[in-house]
Design a protein around this nucleic acid. Structure first.
Length: 310
DNA sequence: ACCCAGGCATTGG
DNA sequence: CCAATGCATGGG
């Protein structure tokens, strides 16, 4: 077992607890993805090399610095660089929140929320595939039900390794889930339809190659928001809602807006319309005020909603 | 027991 | 092209 320690200097302001906490709330505490006693831990799957990252804050919100401890069987300088890059991406450390905060100042309810959650960056998934599968699992059902199902799949099929007597899991690989039968996926508490979606998406992710690259879904990083949505919606099981969440969670696109999201409609209705119901068309028109930072506004509103503030 | 929950595909007008 | 409906699970 080898160990290494590296540092990340996020763009200020950066609140480590808030950002890692947001990550583990929506994700739930699954497998190795956890935040306990100020340490965020996650097992990274770097092309088959399993690396455990343990991250803590050694700076402040206005002068942020993260200490990243890495453990693996193999840790050459290239592995260390890739692992550090991955952790920075997971926590969205390179985002500059300042222009969003300026936009939010013209919006009274939102300015109160950004004040409250000053330094919250938007965390990302480790891969596009992970975001797609998580979104499918989360379609329509309650978040805590989705968490149960997600944990079951990860702990049943994710690459795992023991570190210091504790078992850690990475997200299952597409070839693993794609190799499961519909019956096996149904055993993971998926509906017949979602089992078909997950199997199909897992098989499709390998062959997905709009630009003839071998990167699969990762090639979406090089496409425009519109092209990503078009590619995603063409796949069975993926609609607009899922495509928008993939833009936000996997690709870090600041202006994506998850129209169709029940919780978003609800929180906007409560915060801006005194609880009066609104439809997606009204939400889409209203959200123009946050452009080009609609994804940030969405995440901050969700954070306020979860904490009971909105 | 029933209804709902951070949707989607299919079907019927 | 828009509206209605089945899907599956766990919590209220």
């Amino acid at each position: 077992m080898q160990k290494a320690v590296t540092n990340i200097f996020p763009v200020a302001p950066f609140d480590f607890e808030l950002t890692a906490g947001y990550h583990t709330y929506f994700q739930g505490r699954y497998g190795s993805d956890s935040l306990t006693d100020g340490v965020y831990r996650r097992l990274l799957d770097l092309d088959g090399n399993l690396v455990l990252a343990s991250v803590r804050s050694v700076g402040s919100v206005e002068a942020p610095e993260l200490a990243v401890e890495l453990q693996s069987q193999r840790l050459n300088s290239q592995d260390i660089e890739k692992a550090t890059e991955q952790v920075a991406w997971l926590l969205g450390t390179s985002q500059d929140l300042t222009p969003f905060y300026e936009t939010a100042q013209q919006d009274t309810p939102l300015s109160a929320i950004v004040n409250q959650y000053h330094g919250l960056h938007l965390p990302h998934t480790a891969s596009v595939y992970e975001a797609v599968v998580l979104a499918i699992l989360g379609q329509q059902i309650a978040t805590n039900v989705a968490r149960i199902i997600r944990t079951l799949i990860i702990e049943s099929h994710g690459p795992n390794q023991v570190f210091d007597g504790e078992d850690f899991y990475a997200f299952p690989r597409p070839e693993t889930l794609g190799g499961l039968s519909i019956e096996e996926l149904r055993g993971m508490k998926l509906s017949q339809r979602k089992a078909e979606y997950v199997q199909g998406i897992s098989l499709a992710s390998k062959n997905f190659s709009p630009d003839s690259s071998p990167d699969g879904f990762e090639s979406l990083h090089r496409m425009s928001d519109e092209d990503v949505v078009a590619s995603m919606v063409a796949l069975r099981g993926l609609g607009i809602w899922t495509a928008q969440w993939v833009l936000i969670r996997a690709l870090g696109r600041p202006d994506a807006l998850p129209l169709g999201d029940l919780a978003l409609r609800r929180v906007v209705s409560r915060v801006y319309f005194e609880g009066a119901e609104i439809n997606d068309a009204q939400l889409g028109e209203f959200a123009q005020r946050w452009s080009p930072w609609r994804a940030y506004a969405t995440v901050y509103l969700f954070t306020a909603m979860r904490s009971g503030m909105a």
